[in-house]
């Protein structure tokens, strides 16, 4: 449920470090399960500059609205436009087709501030 090759934020985002200082971002299995059926994703603008901790996207489920915080700082270079028509991909495949955006990081060292898979699993086990 929490792949070992990813990093995790306490706000339930995951980050996949990619070549070229890129960080692919989505929400975790736990987050999508808590939210329930996702019906709308307000995606960030491509090119937007974000700082770690900024709200940069919004995921709406039937019952709740949830801010998605940028786990790292940088520039949004790619967004998953497929979520406009198929927001349910966040539920179906949170670590794959349900990715939200890619941020080109200004400081890759911020990744070290995030949780690893075991620590994140422990965090949600308490929830």
């Amino acid at each position: 449920m929490y792949p070992e090759n990813l990093k995790y934020s306490k706000e339930h985002e995951w980050v996949m470090a990619e070549a070229g200082n890129r960080a692919r971002i989505g929400i975790t299995f736990f987050a999508q399960k808590e939210l329930g059926d996702v019906v709308f994703v307000e995606l960030p603008e491509e090119g937007a500059e974000v700082a770690a901790g900024d709200g940069f996207a919004v995921v709406e489920s039937v019952k709740a609205v949830s801010d998605i915080y940028a786990p790292v700082s940088g520039r949004v270079v790619e967004v998953n436009q497929a979520l406009n028509d198929n927001p349910e991909r966040i539920n179906e495949d949170p670590y794959g087709e349900g990715w939200i955006a890619v941020i080109e990081m200004t400081d890759a060292a911020e990744l070290d501030d995030l949780l690893n898979s075991d620590d994140y699993a422990a965090l949600v086990a308490e929830a």
């Binding site: 329930g36 059926d37 019906v39 039937v62 019952k63």
Partner: peptide, 20 residues
């Protein structure tokens, strides 16, 4: 079912998912 508190009762808010 996922259970929540509603009006003092522990009630099912969803089983398979709200949309379905």
């Amino acid at each position: 079912a996922r259970l929540i508190e509603f009006a003092g009762y522990e009630m099912p808010v969803q089983y398979s998912g709200v949309l379905e």
